[in-house]
């Protein structure tokens, strides 16, 4: 097991393993997304209050979960890269930032589309919306810093520091904003005790969440493969890969 992880830290090995995993992830992810969407859009009953417009949660909630999950993963792999100087971890952190920013954006967009019929407005300065928006700013800061520094490895280490600072700050920002104002409906799934959501809605939601996660892993592997290739462009194995196709 450990040797597997050690080997994974080596770029050529990672490149090969990732290449083999991507199709599997892709097919399973496609299956889950189709099942989740069918369950969510067709099988699940309409909500007794919100009618059909609640169905956007099958996109919205998984995106919001992913936006936080990816930030944590990015910061942790950044830290791993910073501490042990593992090139693959740096590549993973670099590849995560844009995907996380898009998921955050998606969560914001779907939320505001849902907010129009429900709250009567596209945007309210409510705690969760605001902290999601700030999360987007944090992602954009990470991306901006990464692209501003020319040397790839320096860029990775600088963004690792920034994302760790952000990680420490996310709870502070979140609770400050929460304390400042709140209108968003409370947590329905992750609260302690039984979820206050019917199984016929919960199941597609979880399937979608899993599908989103696999999608992220697939895109992550694709992007990190490219990133690794680019970073290692001077090495022999990259030349071999490029020549043999």
């Amino acid at each position: 097991m450990w040797t597997f992880f050690h080997k994974l830290g080596s770029p050529p090995y990672f490149y090969r393993i990732a290449g083999r995993l991507i199709p599997w992830l892709g097919w399973v992810c496609a299956g889950l997304l189709v099942a989740g969407l069918y369950g969510g859009l067709v099988l699940a009953p309409p909500d007794y209050q919100q009618g059909d417009s609640y169905r956007i949660i099958f996109i919205h909630v998984p995106s919001a979960w992913m936006s936080l999950f990816i930030y944590v993963l990015m910061a942790v792999s950044g830290a791993v890269g910073l501490i042990w100087r593992i090139k693959v971890a740096e590549a993973i952190a670099a590849a995560s930032a844009p995907v996380g920013a898009w998921f955050t954006f998606l969560a914001l967009i779907t939320g505001s589309l849902w907010g129009k019929p429900m709250w009567g407005t596209y945007w309210v300065w409510d705690a969760r919306l605001t902290s999601e928006l700030i999360l987007l700013f944090l992602y954009l800061g990470v991306i901006g810093l990464h692209s501003a520094i020319e040397d790839r490895r320096t860029a990775s280490r600088a963004t690792a520091v920034l994302s760790l600072v952000g990680l420490v700050n996310i709870p502070i920002i979140h609770f400050s904003v929460e304390w400042w104002n709140t209108l968003h409906q409370g947590a329905t799934v992750t609260k302690i005790g039984a979820p206050s959501i019917d199984l016929s809605m919960l199941l597609p939601l979880l399937i979608m969440a899993l599908g989103f996660k696999l999608y992220y892993f697939m895109v992550l592997l694709m992007r990190s493969r490219v990133e690794v290739l680019e970073r290692e462009r001077g090495s022999v194995w990259v030349r071999e890969v490029v020549q043999t196709g």
Partner: peptide, 12 residues
Amino acid sequence: LLSLLVLPLYIP
């Protein structure tokens, strides 16, 4: 870039 990095952290 500095304002993009720092301002979100100033919010609390």
